[in-house]
Nucleic acid binder design. Structure first.
Lengths: 125, 125
DNA sequence: ATTGTTGTACTAACCACATAATACAATAAA
DNA sequence: TTTATTGTATTATGTGGTTAGTACAACAAT
């Protein structure tokens, strides 16, 4: 399936975030090989240049390593991966809680909304 | 203070979201008058054209009403406002929970993270 | 009546993003 | 050695967002 991309934000940014999650979640394990620029661009249905830009950003963050003519691999630094995982989670939580508070929801109401979603999904899994 | 705007997304979209929250939270009460395009553009430090575009979108959604030569007011349809409030909240919750699950957090872990933030903030308020 | 404020429309210019189409060097695979 | 694949770089083109500047009609305030 082609990746779900929002036209409201730069595509390369969305590619970065998606691949970040795939790495953090273990879909691409530490030390594992990543698809080539061309292949992954084809899968995502974007231009190779755009995927190249996303990979460059991921490399700048240290999540992936480039071997000049033999593709790319996920970093083997699992400490870094775990750190980024927690960092991403905390940022999502902070933004979420702040946003809901701005909408006028109390702490208890926020927790209730979360539990509603979790219990609702529980019936399907 | 100038509004905090992210260069990663269209400014007018961020203006829409910010004003939405201000309306939903009651900062601009139902039936209340909104600043003029030029004034609010000056406050936010953006071009009047951009603010105009944001207002046009808000009007399309029904949140605000335009009086041709006498400014704009927030809709008096409080049922609509409450509906949008819940709609926004549920979407935020859904996206949040899904994102955290993709990062490999369990339901209990998600709840714990939320409680950490809430309790942490409690000490400052 | 005059002045000021309102929403609105228009053009020009700039820039970032995205795509398309090539091209090249390095190296793995055959 | 030859071929294919890799990352990478380049140029050109199109699109959308943003700003700047200007202008106009409608109406409130004076």
């Amino acid at each position: 399936m082609a990746w779900e991309l929002d036209s409201d934000r730069p595509i390369y940014t969305q590619l970065v975030e998606r691949i970040q999650v795939q790495i953090i979640s273990g879909y691409y394990p530490p030390g594992g090989k990543l698809p080539s620029v061309r292949d992954l661009a084809a899968v995502a249905a974007v231009n190779p240049n755009t995927m190249q830009k996303a990979f460059a950003e991921l490399e700048r963050e240290g999540l992936i390593v480039t071997q000049r003519t033999n593709g790319r691999t996920v970093t083997e630094d699992e400490t870094l991966l775990k750190g980024i995982r927690m960092q991403m989670a905390r940022e999502k939580v902070d933004v979420f809680v702040q946003t809901l508070k701005e909408l006028g929801f109390s702490q208890q109401e926020i927790l209730s909304l979360i539990q509603d979603v979790i219990e609702g999904e529980g019936k399907n899994e």
